[in-house]
Computed example of a mutant assay.
Amino acid sequence: MTYPTVIVNGVSVRVDREGRYNLNDLHAAAVIKGEATEQQRPSQFLRSAQVKRFLKALKSKVLKSTLEQIQPLNVIRGGDNPGVWGVELLAIRYAAWINPVFEISVYETFREAVLNGIGNMTRLNRLDLLIANESKEVSESARKMNRWGVGGRKRMLSSTRENIIEQIDPDMVTIMEGKSS
């Protein structure tokens, strides 16, 4: 599954394969607008007793509601993608911890990403329906053309026409052919 990339205060917030957002990117977005200090890094956020209780409840709920057992928090030290990665609820909770105005901005950004995804799905469904309907029409036309073509209805009608012409007086056929030219 592809998760939407979000941009907060001009900073692209990375998303991992499990749909967790990089809280370090959110912190950078808040610092740029003066909504956070350097001391409000994700590592400080995770030390809070309230946040630890929130994470415990979140882990319990996530593990009960999904078969995949995606952890709501992933802290990576070193490597290609270091940082603190959290599910959307944790990212919004982090934004609230930083600053209420920043929380609203992050929430609206995430909501917009979801709504855009739903809008795109709606457009995709409509397009799929249009393709299916037009494919059906083309298939019906192709079947009709196939029945008409070689060995089909056209041959039968032409053969019937020839039989009728054979039964007409030869002088009448000459008169009819003279009128059609």
Rank of each mutant, 00 (worst) to 15 (best):
Y3A: 06
P4E: 10
P4F: 03
T5E: 13
R20A: 05
Y21T: 05
L23W: 11
K33N: 04
L46N: 07
L46R: 06
Q50M: 05
V51I: 12
F54T: 03
K56R: 10
L63C: 02
K64S: 15
K64Q: 14
S65E: 13
T66P: 02
L67I: 04
L67H: 08
Q69D: 10
P72Y: 13
G79A: 00
V84H: 09
G86M: 02
V87E: 10
V87G: 01
E88P: 00
L89T: 02
L90V: 00
L90A: 01
I92P: 00
A95I: 03
I98M: 04
N99R: 04
V101A: 06
F102E: 06
S105Q: 09
S105Y: 06
Y107F: 12
L115T: 07
G119E: 15
G119H: 12
L127N: 01
D128Y: 09
S135M: 05
S135A: 02
E137Y: 02
S139C: 14
R143D: 15
G151Y: 06
K154H: 05
R155T: 10
S158F: 12
R161G: 06
N163F: 15
I165E: 12
I165G: 11
Q167N: 09
M172W: 12
I175N: 09
G178F: 04
S181D: 04
